[in-house]
């Protein structure tokens, strides 16, 4: 009963045993997590794992069926929300306003003074957002989200569809914010981005199935790496054999695979290959989880 009053002021957002049901569908099941100031927390999971629902509960956009969500130590309210910068996947910009008008509008919504247009957007100040390239729109969405100096940044797949250099630059911004004490919760499908987070949360089937470092999230999952001159042949042979095949460059990999059995399958098909056991990637851990879920088809997720 004293837990709420002892909530640390640096815990910007937290969920305590949060569940969310839509009809008979359990979108989020018993999830407890938090984000503190100065840390970048990566929220990982396949489509439908429950990431976006959890974020919407943390932001107070929808209520939890069970458990509680806290923002700045209190239930999410309009006032609490003013300390959040949120960049949804859809970016949340107004296509028929210019860059400057979007910034002005966002500033006035947060009762801020009229901002100047950031240098890297200055060339586009009077361009309608709908006419901008996606990478530029993302920079603007970031700028809007940072205008009111939020304590917590929530980013839903911030670099989807962005070229490698722009992606690296957006992550510079994320790290600068964290270094200045801002807490960041970021969802991503891109594993190299997951490696930039201080801490990871992995969701599957609505549950938080692992958390901690990359190593913690991968757990004991291993993979078999198959190097061959003909990756397409190896890929289709193993796929037909029902293996959880993935690709890393032109190497074929099998999550949770048995190196000896794979060797036999490839030999029988006449595909020469070099085979070795390696630690799994986060991506492979997700593939293993997704397969397990497809097989078990938990009745609660009908």
């Amino acid at each position: 009963m004293t837990r709420q009053s002892t909530a640390s002021p640096t815990l910007l957002t937290q969920s305590r045993a949060v569940s969310k049901r839509f009809g008979h569908f359990n979108a989020v099941v018993d999830v407890s997590m938090n984000v503190a100031g100065g840390e970048v927390v990566g929220l990982l999971g396949a489509n439908g794992a429950g990431k976006t629902t959890l974020i919407r509960i943390l932001l107070g956009l929808i209520g939890a069926s069970e458990g509680e969500a806290l923002l700045m130590g209190a239930p999410p309210s309009r006032e609490q929300r003013s300390s959040i910068g949120y960049v949804p996947q859809s970016l949340g910009l107004y296509d028929d306003l210019t860059v400057k008008e979007n910034l002005d509008f966002t500033a006035s919504a947060y009762s801020q003074a009229r901002p100047s247009v950031p240098a890297d957007l200055a060339d586009h100040a009077d361009t309608l957002v709908g006419d901008l390239a996606l990478g530029t729109q993302r920079r603007l969405a970031f700028a809007c989200a940072l205008l009111h100096r939020p304590a917590l940044l929530v980013l839903d797949e911030p670099t989807s569809g962005v070229d490698p250099l722009s992606r690296a630059r957006l992550w510079d911004t994320i790290h600068q914010q964290a270094d200045a004490g801002v807490g960041v919760l970021v969802t991503t499908h891109y594993m190299q981005e997951a490696q930039q987070c201080h801490r990871l949360l992995l969701m599957s089937g609505g549950r938080l199935v692992a958390q901690g470092s990359e190593h913690d999230v991968i757990g004991g999952t291993t993979a078999v790496e198959i190097s061959t001159d003909d990756w397409a042949a190896a890929f289709s042979v193993l796929e037909r054999a029902g293996e959880a095949v993935t690709l890393d460059g032109t190497d074929v990999r099998v999550a949770d695979g048995d190196a000896h059995r794979l060797q036999l399958v490839l030999e029988a098909a006449g595909v020469p290959a070099r085979i070795r056991s390696v630690p799994a990637t986060i991506e492979e851990r997700m593939t293993v989880l997704a397969r397990a879920e497809r097989v078990s088809s938990t009745p609660t997720r009908s």
Binding site: A46, N47, G161, V245, M286, A290
Partner: peptide, 23 residues
Amino acid sequence: EPSTGVDPVSRVDLWRLISEAAA
């Protein structure tokens, strides 16, 4: 951009389909 915004699990499925089409 068949795979933009697609999660890693479905990306592997798509890759299998694309490589089969080429094969």
